[in-house]
C-alpha cells in the first residue's frame, strides 16, 4: 500500500511546546510538579520545629552545607533556588498567557447562569495569584527577614515563632496554605491528564492521590502556626 505522506518540517522542541496550548500546559504541569515535590520536602522539613530550637536551627544550617565537601557552602541551596525560580516563572507566565487566551475564547457569557465546575477548579487562577503574592511575602519574611519581627539570621526557629506571634502572620500563612491545598487538589490531577497519564481506570486512584497530597500538605504546613498559637512550640 503506497501512501503519499508529506515530508514533515516541524519547529524545534521549545517552539512546539511554547507555541501550542497543549505544549504550554505541559510546561505548566512539569513546573507545577517540580514545585509540588519541593513543597512536600519543605513541609517535612518544617515539621522538625517540633523537636526544638537546636534541632531546627541545625537542620536549617545543614541546608546550606548540603553537598559539602563536593560543593561549596550554599551551592546546593542556590541550585534548588534557581530551579524553583525557573519553575515559578515558567508556571506563572504560562498560566497568564493561557488564561488570557481562554478568556478571549469565550467573549460572551450565557444569560442563563449556572454553577460550573468544582471549587478547586474554579479557584485555580485566583488561588495562583494568592500563591504568587504569598511566595513574595514568605521570602521577605523568613529568607531576607525584611518584614520579620525577630529577624535574626541563623535563628530560623525564633524567626518562625515571631511570625506566628503576630495576627497578620497567622492570617497570611493560613490563607496561603488553604490556597496551596486547593491548587494542588486540582493541579496534581490536571497535571496527570496533561502529561497523558490519565485514563478511565486510573481516574479514581489519581483523584485520591491528589486529595491525599493536598490534605497532607495543608495539614503539615498548618500544624506549625497552630502549634505556635497554642503554645506547643514557643
Amino acid at each position: 500500500m503506497a501512501l503519499a505522506t508529506r515530508t514533515d518540517r516541524r519547529p524545534s522542541l521549545t517552539r512546539s511546546l511554547w507555541g501550542s496550548t497543549v505544549g504550554k500546559k505541559t510546561v505548566m504541569a512539569v513546573s507545577g510538579l517540580i514545585m509540588l515535590m519541593y513543597l512536600v520536602a519543605h513541609m517535612l522539613g518544617n515539621l522538625k520545629i517540633f523537636f526544638g530550637s537546636g534541632e531546627f536551627n541545625t537542620y536549617a544550617h545543614w541546608l546550606r552545607t548540603m553537598g559539602e565537601p563536593l560543593l561549596h557552602y550554599e551551592w546546593a541551596l542556590w541550585g534548588v533556588r534557581v530551579v524553583l525560580l525557573a519553575a515559578v516563572v515558567l508556571h506563572g507566565v504560562a498560566a497568564y498567557q493561557l488564561s488570557r487566551r481562554d478568556i478571549r475564547a469565550r467573549p460572551s457569557k450565557y444569560v442563563h447562569k449556572r454553577r460550573r465546575a468544582s471549587y478547586a477548579t474554579r479557584t485555580m487562577r485566583w488561588g495562583g495569584i494568592i500563591l504568587a503574592l504569598f511566595i513574595v511575602w514568605h521570602l521577605l519574611d523568613l529568607t531576607t527577614l525584611t518584614v520579620n519581627e525577630n529577624a535574626q539570621p541563623g535563628r530560623p526557629y525564633e524567626n518562625v515563632v515571631a511570625t506566628f506571634s503576630t495576627w497578620y502572620g497567622n492570617v497570611i500563612y493560613l490563607v496561603a496554605m488553604l490556597a496551596v491545598g486547593l491548587h494542588v487538589r486540582h493541579g496534581f490531577w490536571s497535571a496527570a491528564q496533561t502529561l497523558g497519564m490519565g485514563n478511565a481506570r486510573r481516574d479514581r486512584i489519581l483523584k485520591t492521590l491528589a486529595n491525599g497530597l493536598a490534605l497532607v500538605l495543608t495539614a503539615g504546613f498548618v500544624s506549625v502556626p497552630v502549634a505556635v498559637m497554642t503554645g506547643v512550640v514557643g
Binding site: 496550548t21 504550554k24 460550573r116 465546575a117 477548579t121 490531577w189 491528564q193 496533561t194
Partner: peptide
Amino acid sequence: GGCTLAGE
C-alpha cells in the same frame, strides 16, 4: 481556548 480540565 485551552483545556483546564474543568470537565464541563
